[in-house]
């Protein structure tokens, strides 16, 4: 009896110890973010005081400065445009390819999936240089013709979205194929008997069934596109910057202008959409990783 009591006691103490360690790390993870958020409401004079201090009130002009003077409104629009367009391109390219290569038996099915798999080894960071050079080369060529004078290849958000979509094809096709393989043949046979064409079968039968896998793919790639920096900073000019590029610029500016408030506000502006989405999808996200989904 007594011994059992001490064991229970020890287990309780252990649990408390575990909690303490976990809480400590929770603080380590959350503190920088909480600090950023409350610091974004500080006035310039408050910035000169102890960095740990909370602001006396909510100083919103930091946000208007970031959005207007820091041009974050424009960059926000660019980011939304690139992200949504990139995801649209991705769905249109990846879903049909994954469907056909995973469920149709034809001679080229395996070579095609291997081709896309090989892309898993190619990082955007290497090919950014040749992409930049090739786009410029084609641009120089096109500039010789009057008809194409308004066509811009570099500094073009549609091209950027296309590059994002193509670079995430290998991972997305890999993930979607794995899921599509698990759908039983009966559904397609039934659709065929009902007189569905191949296209109708794909969009009316398969796509609705593949929703969970598609949500996972869209989620991972939303994060990729929204957060991407290297490609955007290399290809885009000031008016077409995305939020991350704008944020780095805001940080460089504040070295001279000392508008720290705007910079902290800028950080919150970039973080906020992702935080909101994370709140909704975090379970699915961690499940996706547990299932063996890897990230570029």
């Amino acid at each position: 009896m007594n011994q059992r009591k001490t064991t229970l006691h020890m287990a309780g103490a252990k649990k408390a110890g575990t909690r303490l360690v976990l809480l400590l790390f929770t603080v380590v993870v959350l503190l920088p973010i909480i600090w950023t958020i409350y610091t974004s409401f500080k006035t310039t004079t408050e910035f000169l005081a102890n960095p740990w201090m909370l602001p006396k009130g909510l100083y919103w002009p930091n946000y208007t400065n970031a959005l207007e003077k820091g041009n974050m409104v424009a960059y926000f629009k660019n980011s939304i445009f690139v992200t949504l367009l990139g995801l649209a391109f991705l769905v249109l390219l990846a879903v049909p390819t994954a469907y056909v290569t995973s469920r149709f038996k034809f001679r080229l099915a395996r070579p095609i999936s291997l081709l896309f798999m090989s892309g898993l080894f190619v990082s955007q960071n290497y090919i950014v240089v040749p992409i930049f050079l090739s786009l410029n080369k084609v641009q120089n060529y096109l500039n010789q013709y009057v008809e194409f004078q308004h066509l811009k290849l570099t500094d073009n958000l549609i091209i950027l979205a296309l590059i994002y979509a193509v670079c995430s094809l290998p991972f997305s096709i890999y993930l979607l194929s794995g899921f599509l393989k698990t759908i039983p043949d009966e559904y397609e046979n039934a659709a065929k008997i009902d007189g569905c064409s191949y296209g109708q079968t794909l969009f009316l039968v398969i796509v609705p069934m593949a929703k969970p896998a598609m949500v996972t793919v869209l989620m991972f790639n939303y994060m990729e596109y929204w957060n991407e920096y290297i490609m955007a900073t290399t290809l885009m000019q000031e008016r077409r910057w995305t939020l991350p590029v704008g944020l780095v610029n805001l940080m460089e500016q504040q070295k001279f202008a000392t508008d720290w408030g705007a910079m902290f506000a800028g950080m919150v502006i970039v973080m906020l959409p992702t935080m909101i989405i994370y709140a909704f999808v975090q379970k699915r996200l961690t499940e996706g990783i547990s299932m063996g989904g890897l990230k570029g």
Binding site: L92, L93, A94, P96, T97, Y99, V100, T101, F104, F106, L108, I112, L115, F116, G119, V122, Y126, I127, P130, I131, L133, S134, L162, I163, A165, V166, C167, L169, S197, Y198, G199, L202
Partner: peptide
């Protein structure tokens, strides 16, 4: 149908990934 599904992706993949990687 197989061609419609795969050819656009293959072409774009070749242009924006394979070609730059070879480059």
């Amino acid at each position: 149908f197989i061609a419609e599904c795969t050819v656009p992706a293959i072409i774009l993949f070749a242009v924006f990934m394979v070609y730059p990687a070879i480059n």
